[in-house]
Amino acid sequence: MANNTINTIVVCGAGTMGSGIAQVAATAGFKVLQFDLNESMLLKAAQSIEKSLLKFAEKGKLSKEAVEKALSSIRYTSDIAECKGELVIEAIIENREAKVGLFNQLFTNNGSQLMIASNTSSISIDSIAEQVLFPSQLVGMHFFNPAPMMKLVEVIQGKYTNPAIVQQIADLALLMQKAPVICKDSPGFIVNRVARPYYLESMHLVQNGIATIEQVDAVLQATGFKMGPFKLMDLIGLDINYSVSTIVWEDLGKPPRLKPAAIQKDKIDQGLLGVKTKKGFYQYD
């Protein structure tokens, strides 16, 4: 059930992550407003959410009643003036200026009590907060893809964030049946900071002719990783993964060991982004 102070959650962005977060929020009993400027993205999100919820029902993880209730709890809009609620969870492009512009518009429409949780995977919460109207109301809430399946949520506390809001977002994650971990703002937070060598060293091995893509993935899966680094990068999207690597590298002062890999940039320049383009490090039918 929704808690006493959050009834409506506005999810900004209707891509894979945004629609997944909207599904999670609706399944947890909240009213959800999904916003995106692109009408076709909203239609795709609605179809994706329904398909995902029906799969949960088929597997016995949700009742048909729960599916119907969740679907009826979500409304879709391309009009930012309709984005009214107690909490906004943002899942738009990884661009600081775009996020700042959106947040200030939302604060203007809703007032100083609005809480905004950014799903940014690598952009500093402090650097965003310094440019928004009410910095104490901004927190990080980093879900992992696919959001309906992955349990971990990083809750990022910036130096301006009201500690009470940090705790409220962690409690919200628990209501969503997630496993929240509170961390302080730093480049890449915890997971994406630790994961850089997993991706980068793997690409350097291939780049230097020491091993093939298939060999690296096979070896790491055999040691217990659920997915090899190249398969995982294809799933995440090479453009998104490269962007995170670039942000972490730059924010840490460009250490050579974290320099983004050339073979990944080459793929991006060719428009080969992974699963979403049917080709990345692997080919997908």
Rank of each mutant, 00 (worst) to 15 (best):
N4H: 14
N7P: 08
V10N: 04
V11I: 12
T16M: 08
S19W: 06
S19M: 15
G20T: 12
A22L: 07
A22G: 14
Q23T: 15
V24H: 10
A25Q: 10
A25C: 15
A26K: 09
A28N: 08
G29Q: 05
K31E: 13
K31V: 04
F35W: 04
N38T: 13
L43S: 12
A45N: 02
E50Y: 03
S52T: 15
L53K: 05
L54T: 04
A57T: 14
A57C: 13
A57G: 04
K59C: 07
G60C: 09
K61R: 15
K61N: 08
K64L: 13
E65Q: 12
S72A: 12
R75D: 10
Y76T: 01
Y76S: 09
T77I: 05
T77Q: 03
S78N: 08
I80V: 12
I80M: 06
A81L: 09
K84Y: 11
K84V: 03
L87Y: 00
V88T: 08
A91H: 05
A91S: 06
I92S: 01
I93V: 15
E94S: 06
A98I: 06
A98R: 06
G101Y: 07
F103C: 01
N104M: 00
L106W: 07
T108M: 08
N109Q: 07
N110K: 09
S112T: 08
Q113Y: 11
I116R: 02
N119E: 00
N119D: 00
S121F: 01
I125V: 07
D126E: 02
S127M: 06
S127G: 01
I128H: 02
I128Q: 03
E130L: 03
F134W: 11
P135V: 02
S136D: 15
V139I: 14
G140Q: 04
M141S: 07
F143K: 05
A147I: 15
P148F: 14
M149F: 13
L152I: 13
Y160I: 15
T161N: 08
N162H: 13
N162Q: 12
P163S: 12
A164N: 15
A164L: 15
I165D: 09
I165C: 11
Q168V: 04
D171S: 11
L174Y: 09
Q177G: 11
C183H: 09
D185I: 02
I190R: 01
I190W: 05
V191E: 01
R196I: 03
R196Q: 11
Y199S: 04
L200Q: 13
S202Y: 07
H204Q: 15
L205Y: 08
V206D: 05
I213A: 10
Q215Y: 02
V216S: 02
V219D: 02
L220I: 08
L220M: 14
L220G: 00
T223I: 11
G224M: 04
M227V: 09
G228F: 05
K231L: 10
L232D: 00
D234I: 01
L235M: 12
I236R: 01
L238K: 02
L238E: 06
N241E: 06
Y242G: 03
G253C: 05
G253D: 03
K254D: 00
P255D: 03
R257T: 04
R257A: 12
L258Y: 15
P260K: 10
K265S: 14
K267D: 11
I268F: 09
L272W: 12
L272E: 14
G274N: 05
V275I: 14
G280Q: 05
Q283V: 10
Y284S: 14
D285M: 10
